[in-house]
Structure formats: C-alpha cells, structure tokens
Write a protein that binds this DNA or RNA. Structure first.
Length: 122
DNA sequence: CGAATGATTGTTTAG
DNA sequence: CTAAACAATCATTCG
C-alpha cells in the first residue's frame, strides 16, 4: 500500500532540507520530469493568468492545469523529459566510469584521500 | 526476478 | 536562501 507519492513523502516528514541522504559518491542524479519542463513553460503563463497568485496558489494552479492537460499536450513536455533522460543517461555513463575507476583504484579500501581526475576520453 | 522505496528535478512567491 | 505543494520518474536496493 505504500504507494508513497510525493505527498506521502512530505506527509512522512520527508522534506528536502539539504540533499536527502547521500550514499553514492557522485550519482548523476536523475533526469527531470515532464512536470519540470511543463512548469518551465507555464510558470510565466500561470503568472499571467494569476498575477496575484502566490506560491501556494500558483503552485497548485500549475499542478491542476497539468492534470487538466491532455496527454498529447503533455507529450511535448514528456518529450523533453525523455530528452533530459537521455542527457542523464550520459551522466550515468560517466558516473559508472567514475565508480569503476574509483573502485579499481580503491585497492586498500581506505577512503582517505582519493583524488581522481576525470578524463573524459570522448 | 519482483516490489518498494528512496532520491531527484524544477518552479512559484514571500520572509 | 529556503521552505512546501505540485507531478513525474526511475534507478537503486532489498527480499
């Protein structure tokens, strides 16, 4: 049942104060969501339609509009999301390379000062 | 192998 | 600057 949506996260008290936990050395994070791109384009529009709207209002309005949007309307945004995903994928490759290199370097298992220079031979 | 959960992404405005 | 609401996502990880 724990379908923990972002709402549950905040409900659980999981707010982002300063990065949430950090276990991996340098994860490429992830790609953005269609919503991110959607907002980037709508942020101005929402403000245009709701010049008096504040954080809570604009924020909600944006989400509502998003839901009101038709799949084909979000399509272009999803497309960007996928584009970002592709970009993230690249970071992922580098990330893995870094880990692999670091791991290979970490022979004594002593993470004291491991300075690895990144050389993207691309 | 499968489900779940966590981490992350970007924006808004106001104090 | 940071905080929370808004939605997506999707990769990692545990069983």
């Amino acid at each position: 049942m724990p379908k923990v949506t972002s709402k549950d996260q905040k409900k659980a008290g999981v707010k982002d104060s300063k990065k949430r936990s950090k276990k991996d050395p340098n994860k490429p994070k992830r790609a953005l969501s269609a919503y991110m791109f959607f907002v980037q384009d709508y942020r101005e529009r929402i403000k245009a339609e709701n010049p008096e709207a504040t954080f809570g209002d604009v924020g909600k309005l944006l989400g509502i509009k998003w839901k009101e949007m038709s799949p084909p309307e979000k399509k272009p945004y999803e497309d960007k999301a996928q584009a970002d995903k592709a970009r993230a994928d690249r970071e992922n490759a580098v990330y893995k390379a870094n880990l692999k290199a670091a791991k290979k370097n970490a022979k004594a298992a002593e993470p004291s000062s491991d300075e690895d220079d990144d050389d993207e031979s691309d």
